[in-house]
Amino acid sequence: MKCAIVTGAARGIGLATAKKMLADGWRVVLADWDADELTSVCAVLGDNALPLVTDVSNPEQVNAMIAGTLNWAGRLDAIVNNAGVADFGPIEDTDFARWRAVMDVNLDGVFLCSQAAIAALKAQGGAIVNIASISGLRASTLRVAYGTSKAAVIQLTKQQAAELGEYGIRANCVCPGPVRTKLAMAVHSQEIIDAYHDAIPLNRYGTEEELANVITFLCSDQASYVTGQVVAVDGGFESTGVGLPALRATD
């Protein structure tokens, strides 16, 4: 049975991805630094789910995560680098400590987890799927650290694809657009929600399950000739650039 690691798996897109992979017959290691939430969600996921409390910015904990996975499953076929932090604020208010806190998780964590997984992935010809963001593809206000970290993840993915392909390891990147998570709905005002709906050709937020479907596909053998790709799962948001919704009217 194939095995995957999903980081940032205690909630949101990570948890939805873990559930989708479990439903598709994978064994899944759910990694997160929130021990209480991780224990809670894994309690109902069955024997093919293993919780491992992990801070992806800590090299020792990342190495322990890989070792724990191999001890449990005996193999590793895919890693989904989903763990991330969202910190939004003006450039002039982003001091170096705040900048580093974002980079530690969003960029360094992806690098560390991927690097630690390479030896195990070589044995299977496995897959790396990094979760960036639409904010890594298009600039926006208040995202100097977040957007920059996600843009770097996109480039890191391409580096991984170029270098690891000879080992049969595929590396791809998923860039979510606005997603209807509990967190987003708690902090997005109705004005923000309406503005996003107007700017997205599909006129709605995505769902966690829609992201999970694409991530799981990229981990699977169905995507065996797909590597080095950046997939925006965003309802068309990125493709329209700064196009005004009023100019897309067809009546």
Results as ranks from 00 to 15, higher is better:
127 A>M: 04
135 S>L: 14
133 S>F: 12
151 A>K: 04
178 P>C: 08
148 T>E: 03
158 K>H: 12
177 G>E: 08
127 A>E: 02
136 G>S: 13
173 C>I: 13
157 T>L: 08
170 R>I: 03
135 S>A: 15
147 G>I: 01
133 S>M: 13
157 T>Q: 06
175 C>A: 11
166 E>Y: 00
177 G>H: 06
127 A>F: 01
164 L>P: 03
137 L>Q: 12
135 S>N: 15
132 A>G: 10
131 I>V: 15
134 I>W: 09
168 G>S: 04
134 I>M: 15
158 K>R: 15
139 A>Y: 13
168 G>R: 06
160 Q>E: 12
151 A>Y: 06
167 Y>I: 00
167 Y>E: 09
153 V>H: 08
171 A>D: 05
129 V>S: 03
152 A>E: 02
170 R>F: 06
174 V>R: 01
157 T>C: 08
138 R>T: 12
152 A>C: 09
167 Y>P: 01
137 L>A: 07
178 P>H: 08
145 A>W: 00
177 G>Y: 04
177 G>A: 11
133 S>R: 11
167 Y>D: 12
130 N>M: 13
149 S>M: 07
154 I>P: 04
148 T>V: 12
142 L>T: 10
167 Y>Q: 12
148 T>S: 15
145 A>E: 03
161 A>P: 00
140 S>N: 14
147 G>K: 00
162 A>C: 10
175 C>W: 01
166 E>I: 13
133 S>W: 11
131 I>Q: 07
146 Y>N: 01
139 A>I: 11
152 A>K: 05
151 A>M: 07
155 Q>G: 00
178 P>K: 01
155 Q>C: 04
154 I>C: 10
164 L>A: 03
159 Q>S: 15
133 S>D: 13
138 R>M: 15
142 L>M: 14
141 T>A: 15
158 K>I: 07
161 A>M: 09
127 A>C: 13
139 A>T: 12
159 Q>W: 05
133 S>P: 13
128 I>D: 01
165 G>I: 10
129 V>N: 02
141 T>G: 13
153 V>P: 02
148 T>A: 15
178 P>T: 12
140 S>F: 14
132 A>T: 10
153 V>A: 11
169 I>W: 02
139 A>F: 12
145 A>Q: 06
141 T>Q: 13
172 N>T: 06
